[in-house]
């Protein structure tokens, strides 16, 4: 048993080690990609009426005339040594500050999305599986199908239309009160919820089919209880990986929900930056988000490795 523990730890360690070069490549790649984006950063910072000499001076100052690999190196040094991701064109502040300001909103929204989609999704998936072929199951499957086909931005708009505009029940913009969180929360949760429901349902069906036959042969009385206990346990392991898979979807939903509901979050900041060609901000935001997602995926992987039933068998 000790051998297995060591093996697992080694696997986890390897996984963590593999992630570091990945993050490095992501950072460098993002920098290089944006380097080739149209527009001169110095020009953009100074505005269109600046003199060519001023622009050139600023370019030198910012190190924009250095060869590419030197710029990459300086950028990396800045991040690792000082946590300096550069200065935003728009706000003239270090981008980390701008990001720090908007990140909480996005994180809160994402957490709502994860919690709602996971809890409701798993519950509905279980119900659907246990009552397969019933009216409820079929209704759920139809709703799920629609949910999967609805773009988040349209859903948000329709919710806005119905609840905020027509019924005046909920606010249509802003962030802070719990009422303001409802509509965006629903918008961001719908697609992941549908996916989680589907996956939970199919996992449960697999488990039920196996157990039902066995327990039906044994004692028909406690069949239900055994199904619930055993099946639930088996259904939980995939849920962990499902969360990891849905991160990308959640983030998309966050970006779109922030746009629809005018929330002061990171997603909207990124979009505004793209318009304004605020490359330092785009760069930093993308790297930050990619980091967060990769690390969460890593954690999910580690948890999954630990939860692997093969290891639980002492």
């Amino acid at each position: 048993m000790k051998k297995k523990l060591v093996k697992t730890l080694r696997r986890i360690g390897l996984r963590i080690l593999q992630t570091i070069p990945l993050l490095l490549i992501v950072t460098i790649l993002t920098f290089i990609l944006l380097h080739f984006a149209p527009g001169d950063p110095a020009q953009l910072m100074l505005g269109s009426d600046a003199t060519p000499e001023k622009v050139e001076a600023l370019r030198d100052e910012l190190g924009l005339n250095n060869p590419l690999h030197i710029q990459v190196w300086d950028f990396l040094k800045g991040i690792i040594l000082e946590g300096d991701f550069g200065v935003s064109f728009q706000s003239r502040r270090p981008v980390v500050e701008d990001i720090a300001q908007t990140l909480p909103v996005t994180i809160q929204l994402s957490i709502i999305g994860i919690i709602v989609s996971t809890i409701v999704g798993v519950l509905v998936g279980i119900i659907s599986a246990v009552r397969q072929y019933s009216f409820l199951d079929n209704a759920i499957r139809v709703i799920v199908l629609f949910a999967v086909s609805m773009p988040a931005f349209w859903l948000g708009l329709m919710l806005l239309l119905v609840f905020a505009v027509q019924l005046h029940l909920l606010p249509s913009y802003g962030w802070g009160t719990w009422q303001q969180m409802i509509l965006p929360g629903i918008t961001i949760s719908t697609f992941p919820l549908a996916m989680i429901t589907r996956m939970t349902r199919s996992n449960m069906l697999e488990v039920i089919r196996q157990d039902y036959i066995r327990t039906a042969r044994a004692k028909g009385l406690s069949a239900n209880k055994v199904i619930y206990r055993h099946a639930l346990r088996n259904a939980f392991i995939p849920v962990v990986t499902i969360i990891g898979l849905q991160l990308g979807v959640l983030l998309t939903g966050a970006v779109l929900a922030e746009t629809v509901f005018a929330l002061p979050g990171l997603g909207r900041l990124v979009i505004d930056s793209v318009y304004a060609r605020d490359y330092p901000l785009i760069r930093a935001a993308v790297i930050y988000i990619a980091f967060i997602v990769t690390i969460i995926n890593l954690i999910v992987d580690v948890i999954y490795t630990l939860l692997d039933p093969r290891i639980e068998l002492h």
Binding site: L22, L23, I25, V26, L29, T30, L33, L34, F36, A37, P38, L247, G248, L251, T252, V255, V270, I271, V274, R277, Y279, I282, V286, I289, A290, V293, T294
Partner: peptide, 22 residues
């Protein structure tokens, strides 16, 4: 492929469009 997947897909799409222009 892992590198591409490290980015949340919509964010990567936004990044690429930012580089190529809308």
């Amino acid at each position: 492929m892992d590198v591409v997947l490290a980015y949340p897909y919509f964010l990567l799409a936004i990044l690429i469009v930012a580089v190529l222009s809308p």
